[in-house]
Design a protein around this nucleic acid. Structure first.
Lengths: 138, 138
DNA sequence: TAAATTGTTATAGTAACAATAACAAATAGA
DNA sequence: TCTATTTGTTATTGTTACTATAACAATTTA
């Protein structure tokens, strides 16, 4: 699952939970409502649980629910939780010891540039709350 | 080869050509100097040739050379040439007709957001010339 | 104790990627 | 004209990554 698909799937799941914030929904129901595999969705939601975005209830009648108001959940923390790699993959040619010094400097240049882009993207995502997405898409 | 690796490899090759802008260098020499496969490099440079960034000379004593001054070559055109996909892959969950209307709206939201990010990235790259990279890394 | 649910691992099939080789087309120069 | 060389593109082969799902231990409620 690509970074962007994970992100949109997560937002769909969280939006579904936001419909009835008090009610616990299990992975089968949520997955059915957004058309993804329940097992895959559980692994996404388990990460969001560690981030403190959703609450997990195990066992009979268990499931998930939002642990915060949707105005207090932003895209950046969702994105950073579910995606270990960064948006703009920083895999410039690996620091091959045979590489010339100038090539290494170019690698460093791109690592710095990509980090800068990454920060820009995360700042942009930080401005976007789950609530604002729901308002725009309801 | 990932987008970012293609980009840094291209810049390394162009920087190498910029050392002696008048001299034609063949793919074996360029590839050797930056530690990549000559065949792979040729396919990168052939795209840059179509973009009008390098000039190609086929046959005996052929090779490549810059077709413009390095102050007139920017990262955005290199990036857009070599990479058909965009930096922030826009593969939100494919428009499954079974998807609920709300899910589709969320897909549209993310497509718009990712396009916006893409424009930001390209604007940033447009500011960066090959010359400025060479100055910083020499 | 039984039923249900998460969280994680395993599995198997498919697709993508990497690195290289191969070769037709083109060209320069003898 | 012939030969050597070089690009541009396709093919190949092995490997890695991904996808979608199943399975099941651990946990929890009643």
């Amino acid at each position: 699952m690509s970074a962007s698909t994970k992100l949109s799937t997560s937002v769909k799941a969280l939006s579904y939970l936001a419909l009835e914030p008090e009610t616990v929904k299990n992975s089968t129901e949520i997955a059915g409502s957004i058309g993804v595999n329940a097992s895959k969705l559980r692994s996404l939601l388990s990460v969001l649980a560690k981030q403190g975005i959703v609450e997990t209830i195990k066992g009979k009648d268990g499931g998930f629910r939002l642990s915060r108001k949707c105005s207090e959940i932003d895209l950046q923390e969702i994105y950073c939780g579910i995606e270990d790699r960064k948006a703009f993959h920083l895999d410039v040619h690996s620091a091959d010891s045979a590489e010339k010094n100038e090539a290494k400097k170019i690698n460093r240049f791109f690592n710095a540039l990509f980090s800068e882009i990454q920060v820009d993207i995360e700042n942009k995502m930080k401005q976007i709350t789950l609530q604002s997405i729901i308002q725009k898409t309801q």
